[in-house]
């Protein structure tokens, strides 16, 4: 019983997250300005991270979690670097 509930819930949540990634990609492609693209890239990596965690829950493996941690850390650094570039025109002053 609990297996059915969890399988349905995790599948549903995987679908939601994939859809969210598609929507973020739509905004990424549409723009219109550079800051919109950076913002949607930020949303995209958050969704990807959550999708990895949910997939890990479904497979019962905690190794995917390490991947999620790396996405979280690198996504932050890359968004800050891109925003800094938009702000100043260079990343390291």
């Amino acid at each position: 019983m609990s297996e059915t509930i969890l399988t349905v819930a995790l599948t549903l949540s995987q679908l939601c997250l994939v859809l969210a990634m598609l929507l973020a990609t739509l905004r990424l492609l549409r723009g219109p300005r550079a800051q919109d693209r950076v913002l949607s890239l930020d949303a995209l990596y958050v969704c990807g991270m959550l999708l990895l965690v949910v997939t890990g829950m479904r497979l019962g493996s905690s190794y995917l979690f390490e991947g999620a941690l790396i996405i979280g850390a690198l996504g932050f650094v890359s968004t800050v670097a891109l925003s800094k570039f938009l702000l100043r025109g260079e990343v390291i002053e």
């Binding site: 019983m1 609990s2 297996e3 509930i5 969890l6 399988t7 349905v8 819930a9 995790l10 549903l12 949540s13 995987q14 939601c16 997250l17 859809l19 969210a20 990634m21 929507l23 973020a24 905004r27 913002l39 949607s40 949303a43 958050v46 969704c47 959550l50 949910v54 829950m57 479904r58 019962g60």
Partner: peptide, 30 residues
């Protein structure tokens, strides 16, 4: 997944669906 007791399965299901649903709404807003 079958090892999880029923009450916990319901709690986990609600939390995960709520979390990913809110993320989807955020992307929709985007």
């Amino acid at each position: 997944l079958a090892q999880v007791p029923l009450w916990a399965a319901i709690v986990i299901a609600v939390l995960v669906v709520l979390g990913s649903g809110l993320t989807l709404l955020g992307a929709l807003g985007l």
